[in-house]
């Protein structure tokens, strides 16, 4: 039996378009068994990549699978709060109060906060001077 990846399954479901695809048709087209088909479909659903709705087909319950369009990369919002260093910090997962890496004594976070305060004050003084000239 051919090894089926989630990528292959996703591609098949996506090519079915808005009408979706029955789970039984998915594993048949992937040349695998229902156990594997169900496993992959559940995984894709958990990841939020596909949507499953229950459907009765030839007297048997199965699922119809749809690609969830909300998960397209274009929808991803990458908001780094004006270059907050935490987003790209390699120690982020270990960072916490009382840990060796702590938000309370992080030099990078300090620098960013100082910059943010300076930027805000700069903007305010700029606004004030503009108001005065107006």
């Amino acid at each position: 039996m051919k090894r089926v990846t989630e990528k292959d399954a996703y591609e098949v479901i996506r090519s079915a378009g808005s009408k979706g695809l029955l789970q039984s048709d998915l594993w048949r087209s992937l040349n695998t068994n229902s156990r594997e088909g169900s496993r992959i479909a559940t995984k894709l659903e958990k990841k939020g990549l596909v949507r499953r709705t229950k459907e009765l087909c030839d007297g048997r319950w199965t699922y119809r699978l749809y690609v969830d369009e909300r998960t397209q990369v274009s929808d991803v919002l990458w908001c780094t709060l004006n270059h907050c260093p935490c987003f790209t910090c390699k120690n982020l997962s270990q960072c916490g109060v009382g840990h060796s890496v702590s938000p309370n004594n992080c030099i990078e976070l300090d620098k960013w906060l100082i910059d943010q305060v300076a930027e805000k004050n700069g903007k305010e003084t700029l606004d004030e001077s503009e108001e005065k000239t107006n």
Binding site: V76, C95, L113
Partner: peptide, 19 residues
């Protein structure tokens, strides 16, 4: 990528709240 960003956002939120 969506899950990655969501988890990063949550982690950063925790860091900023602690600070």
């Amino acid at each position: 990528i969506t899950n990655l960003i969501r988890s990063k956002n949550k982690q950063v939120l925790g860091v900023l709240k602690a600070r």
